[in-house]
Simulated scan of single mutants.
Amino acid sequence: MNTSKVWYITGASQGLGLTLVKELLRKGDRVAATSRNAHVLRQAVELIDSDRFLPLSVDLSNPDCVEESVQQTLSAFGRIDVVVNNAGYGMLGTLEDATEQDIRNIFGINVLAAMRVVKQVLPVMRRQRSGYIINIGSVAGFAGAPGWSVYAATKAAIAAFSEVLASDVKEFGIHVTVVEPSGFRTGFLAQDSLAMIPVTGEDYNAVKDSRDRYLAANGKQPGDPDRAAAILIDLSEADDPPLHLFLGEDAYRRATEKLTVMSAALERWKTVAIKADFPL
């Protein structure tokens, strides 16, 4: 009997997704992986093994296409144990300069695509009475930086979605984790991966400084994709994985600093907050 796990991973042709796929195949698990181009994905993975690897061309903006990919995975492997919603991209610039379509596009991939995948997979995991959903968020969704407002909004949405989803599906033996990394050397800041919104205003010095700092850090980020992939695999083996996992020392620092500030602000404004209720 084959006891390896079956993984379904989106955005798998580069970055963390590709690193994770390669490591899972190396250790003997079975993987269905999505990309806009399955041929490119197959070449990147460099493995021809239809018994363990199923590369899929999937348009994540199309619900029918997502449903078909899940059915193909079930036909090939019989079950789905772990889902990793990794597909997504960054947007750097100001809200003023972002077009309506820019905003719709990034929410479509970073948020709605993940929801489409989960929607299709949940009936499978409920029948199994087991499963694990890993949504790749970002520390920016909790403690963002200037210039990343729209991107941060998508990742905050993923975090909130994951929190409530976890409570919805706990009774079925399904776990949920939102992984919130800081900077990793995954090509996230590369020209062909990042949506750069030109800053047209004369001001916005904080945004411009942040943009220059982040672009200069491309290829020098402290996060190691190999280590991140190993952590995700370890999470899949845990009996009680965390709901939130801030990944990387910078992510841990930023989250800790914000929690400290938030806790102080909550206490400072407590008397105002509770005045909003009807008197007892």
Rank of each mutant, 00 (worst) to 15 (best):
A238G: 01
A140C: 14
G90S: 07
E67I: 03
F107M: 01
R253N: 15
A98N: 01
R126P: 02
S236P: 03
N2C: 07
V31I: 08
H175K: 15
V84T: 12
D192M: 03
T73P: 04
D234N: 05
L259S: 14
D102A: 00
I106N: 02
R185S: 14
E180V: 09
G137V: 04
G219I: 14
P222Y: 05
S75L: 07
K270G: 07
K258P: 10
I109H: 01
K270N: 13
V118W: 00
E163W: 05
E237Y: 06
V124K: 02
N105C: 00
R211S: 09
S167Q: 13
P63M: 04
Q191W: 00
R126E: 02
G137W: 03
V21I: 09
G90K: 00
S210Y: 08
E237P: 04
L24F: 08
Y151C: 09
S13M: 06
T256W: 14
R52K: 10
L60N: 13
I233C: 10
R211M: 12
I103P: 00
V178F: 11
V272K: 08
A140P: 10
S138Y: 10
E267D: 13
V199G: 04
Y151Q: 08
A160I: 08
A32C: 10
L20W: 11
L243N: 04
T271L: 14
R79G: 04
F246W: 12
Q72R: 14
Y8Q: 04
I109N: 03
S50V: 04
G147E: 05
